[in-house]
């Protein structure tokens, strides 16, 4: 059964089409990923699905309720962890959760019981009376995860839940998300540009670029599309014989960037000698299985992240966002 039915959803801002005629079904209990670079339309899609932004045209049903006509019921059905921290940092963790329970009309007894449960789930019980200002970034994200779950939503939206966190906190958040999916039995929609995150968590994902879905499948199947391995050959300023490589017949894709030639090859380990013979002199060799990064590259022709340095992209995007506010 589909818990989310997106039907020709479109959002225009002046002359920019942020989300372009999106149609998609997400099944009950799925862990669904929306993958794409900044500005691809992930967050706008999420803001529409959470009733915060009105679609220009098209609609969607969440838990059977129409986004526009039944916004109140949609809101009762969903929980959200926003991209930027959205808790009040002058309140304590407990007070933020209490406020949330009040906003969602939870009876006091149930509210207090759920606060205990969700605090336990994200290991914040002993910090519940600290003011959120004194939380670390990871703790704050965990608090908001707890908050998003508190009213037992049918669907939990996670918008870049690990953006700006250090690798260790990111790992923690993933572990919590996996745990809550097991324990709370809900549908999760995740947006991210961390490929490892999508690969590890999602049962199915959509790659979005320029407001459109360019690929939709399980991470494993998406990687299969690429057909195997990625061979990176450092050629420096040399003159690699790419025509000869092409002539080998089993190389699916050839790209050259910054002194590196990247090939997509099935059974690369067996065919490496032939490739090396064809291409001429190389300075370095790397062979690895295709990742979602490569899948993204394959579909969009661009790299997801500019560098593989942990957190680098996130930090830069944070700077970017604070600079453009």
């Amino acid at each position: 059964m589909a818990i989310i039915e997106i039907d020709h959803l479109t959002k225009r801002f002046d002359d920019i089409v942020a989300v372009d005629d999106l149609t998609l079904e997400i099944a009950d209990g799925e862990f669904f990923g929306l993958l794409g670079p900044n500005g691809a339309g992930k967050s706008t899609t999420l803001l529409m699905l959470t009733t915060l932004v009105r679609p220009t045209s098209g609609t969607a049903r969440v838990n059977g309720f129409d986004l526009v006509r039944q916004a109140g019921q949609v809101r009762r059905s969903i929980g959200i962890v926003f991209q930027d921290p959205s808790s009040d940092d002058t309140l304590t963790g407990y007070e933020n959760l209490k406020l949330h329970g009040m906003l969602y009309g939870m009876p006091p007894a149930l509210r207090e019981q759920r606060i205990v449960e969700v605090l336990e789930l994200v290991d914040l019980t002993n910090r519940k009376d600290s003011i959120v200002k004194h939380y670390s970034g990871g703790m704050r994200r965990r608090l908001e995860l707890a908050r998003g779950l508190m009213h037992r939503p049918k669907v939990l939206f996670l918008d870049e839940p690990t953006l700006g966190l250090d690798p260790q906190s990111r790992d923690h958040i993933w572990a919590y998300v996996e745990r809550l999916v097991r324990e709370e039995n809900i549908t999760v929609v995740l947006t991210t540009h961390y490929m490892e995150e999508a690969d590890r968590l999602c049962s199915r994902l959509a790659i979005i670029d320029h407001g459109k879905i360019v690929a939709l499948d399980s991470p494993a199947n998406l990687k299969l599309v690429l057909g195997g391995d990625v061979v990176s050959l450092g050629v420096g300023k040399g003159e690699p014989n790419l025509d000869a490589v092409k002539a080998l017949g089993f190389v699916d894709k050839i790209e050259r960037r910054n002194g590196i030639v990247q090939l997509t090859v099935r059974d690369a380990r067996d065919r490496l000698p032939q490739i090396l013979q064809a291409i001429g002199e190389v300075k370095s060799i790397e062979v690895r299985p295709a990742s979602l990064d490569d899948v993204f590259m394959h579909y969009t022709g661009r790299e997801m992240r500019e560098s593989s340095a942990e957190g680098g992209w996130a930090e830069r995007s944070m700077h970017y966002r604070s600079a453009t506010r």
Partner: peptide, 14 residues
């Protein structure tokens, strides 16, 4: 709005 707390309030069912 600047600290995004407003989103938490506006997405609540009130």
């Amino acid at each position: 709005r600047k600290i995004d707390f407003l989103k938490e309030v506006l997405v609540a069912p009130i």
